[in-house]
């Protein structure tokens, strides 16, 4: 009895700092954003209550529909492709092949480099006039390529997503930390039973780190939903809004001083994301750790 109440007190004490800070930096601002989403507001004059008008306007805008579609494509690409590649790399590196330490550091470096520099690199690679990609394709195929990769409706979105998906360092270090924590003894036993490397990965590594992979997928999808930086720097949402995302739209609305609409976009983003997180956690997440229910 006594122990229980003292535990409860400790729990409260341990949760207090995070609750305070989270309230101040997430719940209060989100409340503010939600409140302003119900208003017409230019940031200067007083807010004017308009109910759900901002949401109705959004729902009817074709750019909004396009942005939602793009965000879903982003979330799926990052969640499955990027995390998939990251997992494979992590599994291989955990077996310490030759040069593994160097490889691991290099994989992570793009995460350290500012997004501005990376975006400029890819803009130069994808450029129609002097870009490296066209030059390589011309060399390989023998006929002239002059595709304006970031300026055509068909290629712009895949081009931005492709460069992002290839930077696996972020999720690689999360998953690698999980894989490296698996005791050697698990594998030793399997080796004695004659299991091949692939079988070991499939039957030991994957189940043990499944929880971490789901964590990474959830994070990756969240990043896909709120994606902003690379698109902003490489196409700004163009050509003709075809690569727009919710966050890009929101940024433009802030620039146009339509803060009510910007807030409505922010609110929609959080609501969609919340649904995705809860769904992912309750479907995939249940099977973490050797299939046990946690």
């Amino acid at each position: 009895m006594n122990k229980k109440t003292s535990n409860a007190r400790w729990i409260l004490l341990f949760l207090l700092p995070i609750v305070l800070l989270y309230t101040a930096f997430f719940i209060y601002p989100f409340g503010f954003v939600f409140f302003s989403s119900l208003n017409k507001w230019n940031g200067i004059s007083h807010m004017k209550f308009v109910g759900l008008q901002n949401y109705v306007n959004l729902a009817m805008s074709t750019t909004f529909q396009l942005s939602i579609r793009n965000n879903i494509i982003w979330a799926l690409s990052l969640g499955f492709l990027q995390v998939g590649f990251a997992s494979v790399i992590a599994f291989i590196l955990a077996r310490k092949p030759r040069f593994w330490k160097g490889l691991r550091t290099v994989y992570f470096i793009p995460k350290v480099i500012s997004g501005v520099a990376i975006a400029m690199l890819w803009k130069a690679v994808y450029n129609a006039e002097f870009g490296a990609l066209n030059a390589i394709l011309t060399f390989l195929t023998g006929h002239t390529w002059n595709v304006n990769w970031l300026g055509e409706f068909n290629s712009a979105l895949p081009a931005i997503i492709a460069q992002e998906v290839m930077y696996i360092g972020y999720f690689m270090i999360i998953i690698l930390a999980g894989v490296m924590a698996i005791p050697r003894s698990y594998y030793e036993a399997a080796e004695i039973d004659g299991a091949s490397v692939l079988q070991q990965e499939l039957h030991i590594t994957l189940p043990v780190v499944w929880g971490t992979i789901v964590t990474s997928m959830t994070l990756a999808m969240a990043y896909g939903l709120r994606h902003f930086e690379a698109t902003f720097l490489m196409t700004g949402g163009g050509p003709g809004h075809s690569t727009s995302t919710l966050a890009i739209m929101m940024y433009n609305k802030i620039g146009a001083r339509k803060l009510g609409q910007a807030s409505a976009l922010g609110t929609v983003l959080v609501i969609i994301g919340f649904i995705v997180i809860v769904t992912l956690n309750s479907t995939l997440g249940r099977k973490s750790l050797t299939g046990e229910d946690t």
Partner: peptide
């Protein structure tokens, strides 16, 4: 104009 004008900053 140049091809990269479309989308160019």
């Amino acid at each position: 104009t140049t091809k990269d004008a479309i989308g160019g900053g």
